[in-house]
Design a protein around this nucleic acid. Structure first.
Length: 745
DNA sequence: TTTGACGACATTTTT
DNA sequence: TGTCGTCAAA
């Protein structure tokens, strides 16, 4: 008890109240940086400490694995024990766990595969083809979006089918129902169905429902504002046993409505869960008062808020900096300079983050950081498991563990190229549909047919190989098996040839990725465990505590905090995103504003906001970007605007036209570069080394130390006519064209 | 029938 | 930057 009290000392009054109230329904409205994770972890600790529950009687759901892991590690520290067999995870991973144990009630086998969006689209694409629905009029993506929307709202296809009146609705209902049937037939499950199937099981089988209701004495939910209607339904079933639930949320941080999140869930909390009360956490421990003030002033422009008032005891802090740049290269350069300055002041790179609206915008920063050798990490972004070569390997593993996995087979049937093209694939699909069998079975039927051609022979070889690997699965360990599949299928060979042919950067890291993949396999006992992990877990950021700058989207920054935060790309159209406003009007804009609120409140000490004149999306466009309206919504007295002439839009436009007719001799370096960018289309890198710029030819010597934009520093081993063999410090030996090498000053 | 090359094209956010 | 469709060659 002493220990507990000591722990509670670190909490404020409201937080203690929130921790102590364990029975009934509690909604905690927790503003940014008000210590909600702290409350949740203390609550778990409190429940255990007071012997109110055993570890497996607490269900804690979050939205990201990051949040779940954070919670686990904090609790584990408090109780001084590792966490095993606990029910702390994302909605999806907890659902998957329940579903694996009871899949037969929804006609899935135990080893069902969880598919991602790419597979979903492929499936819908095939359905459109089979049902002769014109894909040019309405794309598969369109259908998927609508289907997802229905699923998030807990509407199944039979309800849709009955209501469908016009042709469009009927098509949607048809695709939806075919899609669901196909998933079952292929023994697959998409993300939403993890939730929906669970509810289905609860409905169909009272025993199972009772068992879970009995087990989960206390339910804790993080980021409640991000739940959708189906997830709330899921919670209701599990809650109805002991009726103890505690949800933490912040309506101002709801940024996932495009994924079906309903802020309404917060508003209806009192109606849905009995005996409820609510607590507001409004003291912010994270940011300076100035940052809080900016964030509050900004978010006030939204209507329909609960209207919390965040306050803080922290210092008032430095002014927020607003910087305008001419092009993304300049932005990256200036920011990296600024980061180096901070770094010289002994600020750890881990405490610095660059947040962007669009994941792809990391590019200019990556280039720059590689250039000057600043270490960085990308959180989120293109996930490792989303890479083409990784998905290929996974598909090989999927088909051998589940022969009815058509999507996996279709992916690899002609990778590497075996001469089994579109035409043959169509024939196979027709056979499969006619016999209502899997694609794999269809291949066998095809082999029995009278046709004789090259494709048939190749299919024969592939089929027997798959069967062979399947047998070996029992004998070999999973890593050896994967290695042998990669060799035997010719996949490795394909990558090697590719590498030799295109000896440039395009495919330089495919092989590395495969190696990393094999390495990652070691953490798992078998392939099935690994496949589960791959589909559910989103972890680019392993225990990487080394000192690096953090790059990520504003969305993935939620829940994180940094001393210094750079917010880039604050341009109208980029942020707030043009599409978001076009598609959802005012509510779209308000969600963008909430995103800005989230971004601002990530910072502890200071914020640097920047915007760029150059159009980020196209290289040739002369479009002029204007600074984001969100900048003008911030309180002027808290800002330090470095480039006022650009900031005032009238001047901004005038200056630009002067540049275009090239009559102005007052050119700043930034403008010069921009002009150059427009007038000369050589994509040589003119930025790195001004001295070599005028030389028609760069002269290199063997043994010379050089720099390459992608691979970094290296030494020239051997020079040929136009290219050189370079030994890079990080990337090893590469053949590089001389024109891509940069001399060091 | 398959494959590679070429040009046009559009580019949010994620479990 | 990378993907998609089209076209001609193998």
């Amino acid at each position: 008890m002493e220990n507990m009290d000591k722990n509670l000392n670190y909490l404020n009054e409201k937080q203690i109240e929130a921790v102590n109230k364990t029975e009934g329904s509690l909604l905690i409205l927790a503003g940014a940086g008000s210590g909600k994770t702290r409350v949740l972890t203390h609550k778990i600790y409190y429940l255990l400490h007071k012997n109110l529950a055993l570890p497996n009687q607490i269900l804690a759901v979050t939205f990201t694995n990051k949040a779940a892991n954070e919670m686990k590690s904090r609790v584990s520290k408090m109780i001084n024990k590792p966490i095993e067999g606990w029910w702390i995870g994302t909605f999806h991973s907890v659902s998957a766990k329940i579903l694996r144990r009871n899949s037969e009630y929804v006609n899935l086998k135990k080893d069902f595969v969880i598919i991602d969006q790419e597979d979903q689209l492929k499936l819908i694409n095939k359905i459109c083809e089979a049902k002769k629905i014109d894909k040019n009029e309405k794309s598969p993506k369109y259908f998927l979006n609508i289907i997802e929307r229905y699923k998030n709202k807990f509407l199944n296809y039979s309800e849709i089918t009955n209501k469908a009146k016009n042709l469009d609705d009927k098509n949607i209902a048809l695709v939806y129902s075919e899609y669901e049937k196909e998933l079952i037939r292929l023994n697959c499950c998409d993300f939403s169905n993890l939730i929906l199937h669970c509810i289905d099981i609860f409905k169909k089988n009272k025993n199972i429902l009772n068992q879970y209701q009995h087990q989960f004495k206390y339910i804790l939910v993080d980021e409640y504002q991000d739940t959708n209607f189906s997830q709330q339904e899921w919670l209701k079933y599990l809650y109805s046993g002991h009726k103890n639930i505690c949800c933490v949320g912040d309506d101002d941080q709801s940024i996932y409505s495009w994924r079906g999140a309903e802020i309404k869930n917060i508003l209806s909390f009192k109606k849905v869960f009995e005996n409820s009360s609510s607590i507001n956490l409004e003291q912010n421990y994270r940011s300076t008062q100035r940052i809080l003030n900016c964030a509050s002033v900004l978010i006030k422009n939204n209507q329909g808020r609960y209207g919390k008032k965040l306050w803080s005891d922290n210092d008032y802090g430095e002014k927020i900096q607003i910087n305008g740049y001419w092009e993304t290269k300049e932005e990256a350069k200036e920011i990296s300079d600024c980061i180096e300055k901070l770094n010289r002041k002994k600020i750890s790179l881990n405490q610095i983050a660059i947040l962007m609206r669009v994941a792809a915008h990391t590019r200019s920063f990556e280039e720059r950081f590689l250039n000057i050798g600043l270490p960085y990490r990308i959180i989120g972004g293109t996930r490792f498991y989303d890479r083409k070569e990784i998905k290929d390997v996974i598909s090989y593993l999927r088909i051998i563990s589940n022969l009815s996995d058509n999507l996996a087979l279709e992916r690899i049937i002609n990778v590497p190229k075996r001469g089994i093209g579109q035409k043959t694939l169509n024939t196979l699909n027709i056979i499969s549909r006619k016999n209502s069998s899997s694609l794999f079975e269809a291949c066998k039927f095809y082999l029995e047919s009278n046709e004789s051609n090259k494709a048939k022979n190749e299919i024969n070889i592939l089929i027997s190989k798959i069967l062979k690997w399947r047998k070996l699965k029992k004998e070999l360990n999973h890593i050896d098996l994967t290695e042998m599949i990669l060799e035997d299928s010719g996949y490795m060979n394909m990558l090697n040839i590719e590498k030799e042919q295109k000896d440039n950067f395009q495919n330089y890291d495919r092989l590395d990725n495969i190696a990393e993949f094999l390495n990652g396999l070691q953490e798992f006992e078998n392939i099935d465990g690994f496949l589960e992990h791959v589909s559910l877990v989103f972890d680019n950021d392993k225990f990487d505590s080394t000192n690096k700058i953090n790059l990520m989207t504003m969305h993935s920054a939620k829940g994180l905090e940094f001393d210094y935060v750079f917010l880039i790309g604050w341009e109208e159209g980029v942020f707030p995103s043009k599409r978001s406003i076009e598609e959802n009007g005012k509510s779209g804009l308000e969600e963008e504003r909430r995103l800005a609120y989230v971004a601002l409140t990530r910072a502890k000490k200071n914020i640097f906001i920047s915007y760029v004149n150059e159009n980020r999306y196209s290289y040739a466009s002369h479009d002029i970007n204007t600074p984001s309206r969100f900048i003008s919504e911030l309180p002027k007295e808290d800002l330090e605007i470095s480039n006022t002439e650009i900031f005032q839009q009238d001047n901004f436009l005038n200056e630009f036209s002067q540049i275009e007719d090239q009559s102005n001799e007052y050119l700043t370096p930034g403008k010069k570069r921009m002009l150059k960018h427009f007038t000369n289309n050589r994509n040589d890198d003119f930025e790195f080394n001004q001295d070599t710029e005028n030389l028609t030819e760069k002269i290199f010597r063997e043994g010379e130390r050089i720099f390459h934009n992608k691979f970094g520093y290296g030494k020239i081993v051997n020079i040929e006519e136009q290219a050189a063999l370079v030994n890079f410090e990080k990337a090893g030996n590469k053949m590089i064209f001389l024109k891509y090498l940069n001399k060091l000053v």
